[in-house]
Computed example of a mutant assay.
Amino acid sequence: MELTEPTVWSTDRLELGEGLRWVDDRLVLVDLLAGRLLEANGAGPAPLRELRRLDVPLGAVAPVADRPGDLLAAAGTGVSLLPVTGDPRPVVDLVGDAPEPTRMNDAVADPHGRFWAGSMTYAGIPGGGTLYRLNPGAVPVPAVTGLTIPNGPAFDATGTTMYLADSPPGEVDRFTVDPGTGDLHGREPFLRLAPADGSPDGMAVDAAGHLWVALWGGSAVRRYRPDGSLDREIRLPAAQPAGICLGGPGLRRLFIGTARLGLTSPGPTDGAVLAVDVPVPGLPTAHATAPGAD
């Protein structure tokens, strides 16, 4: 089945469909504020299956290396391990003592096994967000501070280039990553979007090193070349695309999570998972090193 146009992939309509990851030949995603971990059929449109429901917001997950089925999650005010069976196990609290009510947002593993997780205030206070880096066996590091609503990050195949969005100001920056330590260097502006374009939200790098960006409020996803120029735009039948990933057959299916959150009159496909096939495949999903491992 070739999807030449964006296709509704779920009968469900989510409040905030985020954190899409292609894990073990299946699509995993979250309904963020509802704390729901969901699974979608990669072969064809079908209802979503609920894998877990937490009592805190669930931002995103990453598979854990050498522990099939286990997931590392940005959840509540920190990071937790979601074992394939049994209750969630807290790993670290990151923002529980923040001066303003704060929660975790997007998160991802890089190709070297580090876990990166962003935080934001519930009120979206400028400067109240931070991107944290969790190196295996080390104390978490606030890697980028002074953000508002961090989304991503997204890494290239080598893990030496990182893209990070700050959604409200419409900014995506690019960093050089030290492969041994995860230290960030050479921060530079990559995208500066006008409000009419929408806000950069979920992102993914493909096998050619181009960056896909979901445009919250822009009803579109865009693919940008490494020099920051626009390669293509795909218009969507949903106003608020939030999370994206490349998976499916040959990793050439672009899955898009959307949201109904904040819409006074949601359309029939707002909150749906969408899918469309693209010419260039994505990268395999990176696995996080198990907590406590070196």
Rank of each mutant, 00 (worst) to 15 (best):
A288P: 05
G198V: 10
P136R: 11
H287W: 10
D197Q: 08
V141H: 13
I125M: 02
R235N: 00
A208I: 06
N135F: 14
P153S: 13
G202F: 14
V141W: 15
E15M: 07
G96D: 07
A43S: 05
L215N: 13
A154Q: 05
R235H: 12
V177M: 01
R260V: 06
T158S: 12
P168W: 04
D277Q: 04
G35T: 09
G228I: 09
L147G: 01
R13G: 08
V64Q: 09
I244Y: 11
A238C: 02
G17F: 15
L134H: 12
V8C: 12
P179I: 05
L82S: 06
P266T: 05
G202R: 11
L72T: 13
W9I: 12
A40G: 04
R49D: 00
R52E: 02
A60G: 03
N41T: 01
G96K: 04
A62I: 13
L54S: 01
M120E: 06
I234D: 05
Y132E: 01
P68G: 02
Y132R: 00
S229T: 15
R232N: 01
D106H: 10
T285D: 12
S80I: 07
D66V: 01
T289K: 10
L274M: 03
G170K: 02
P99L: 04
L27F: 09
L58H: 11
T77N: 03
L94D: 02
P179N: 06
T102A: 02
Q240H: 14
Y132I: 04
D231H: 08
P111S: 04
P136K: 12
R36G: 00
R26K: 09
D231Q: 07
V56S: 03
S265W: 08
D206S: 05
P142R: 06
D294S: 08
R232E: 13
P126D: 03
L14D: 08
N105A: 05
G271I: 07
A220F: 00
P6T: 12
R253P: 00
P189T: 14
G69D: 12
H210A: 12
E50F: 06
E18M: 11
V64A: 07
E2F: 04
P45T: 04
A107N: 09
T158F: 00
A154I: 14
G248R: 11
L283F: 13
P279D: 14
A204G: 00
S167Q: 09
E171D: 03
R89G: 00
G180K: 07
V221A: 06
P153L: 11
G159C: 07
P268Y: 13
L14C: 10
A293D: 15
A117P: 02
A109W: 14
G17H: 12
A272M: 07
A109N: 10
V177G: 01
L184K: 05
G96W: 15
D270L: 01
R252H: 10
N41A: 01
L32M: 15
